[in-house]
Amino acid sequence: MGVLVGKDTRLVVSGITGREGSFHALNNRKYGTNVVAGVTPGKGGQDVEGIPVFNTIADSVKEAGANTSMLFVPPRFAVDAIYEAADSGVEVIICITEGIPAHDMLLAYHYVKEKGVRLVGPNCPGVCTVGEANVGIMPAHIFTPGSVGLVSRSGTLTYQLGKELSDMGIGQSTILGIGGDPIIGTNHRDALALFEADPATDMIVMVGEIGGNEEELAAEFIKDHVTKPVIGYIAGLTAPEGKAMGHAGAIISGNSGTAQSKVDALTEAGVKVGENPTAVARLVAEARGVAVPA
């Protein structure tokens, strides 16, 4: 179980003949993910270490039974790949590509939504249901199977949290990297709803960061819709105002989007918030009655 990806995932990888695409497709397969196809226009009929390559995503759905699409396509072509995937019949699209223009994503977002397809990303590290399927670029060997769901905008920070939990002997159900771009297909609230509905998840760790108001909205959502315990973390407590910190999302202006306003909103919603990744893992351990190492 877990959310979005798992034993039933039949993955098609767009951009599989590229250097990064092939590396991560094979890495995902090695983890146990059922990689059924790759797509590179014009290279249909070839294969990448036994994975058949198709010209279109629709072909891979028809002929290889793909139900989940991972996009490893350069930014200038990635938005077209999102449209193609949404149109192909897959149920889940995971877009790893970083650097897609925001206006392009604005239009693609509404298209995907209308099609009723789930989009994760863009600019995300992917999704890993521990022990079942890893779709994306996460170093999944640091995760251990368990029942804590983890959602985060940031890749490496997600790994950090996953490792801190693993180090304390706390396993995870699904690690969900939602991405740091201004327009993403799945936000914190969507992720919380998925984990709330997942029988394999009994606790949620939500990692946010400065900028925007998603974490505040997530706090509202937790109050009304989430019964499972949530532990929070907000990166950027000490970030200066008005400076972009890498992620397009991570910029503070005035009082909105500050780490403190997010921490306050979460605390008010009954979420315990740790001040750093180690502190978060300790809060999770305490909440689960796991002995905390000194």
């Binding site: 985060s152 905008r153 920070l157 400065i210 407590l237 000490t238 970030a239 910190m245 890498g246 991570a250």
Partner: peptide
């Protein structure tokens, strides 16, 4: 590496009583 991790790194430096000189991702 990674904006989130670097922001978190700035935080732990401050929490350890220091002051970060920069953000570099």
């Amino acid at each position: 590496n990674g904006a989130g991790l670097v922001m978190s790194t700035l935080d732990v430096i401050q929490q350890a009583g220091g002051r970060p000189a920069n953000f570099l991702d």
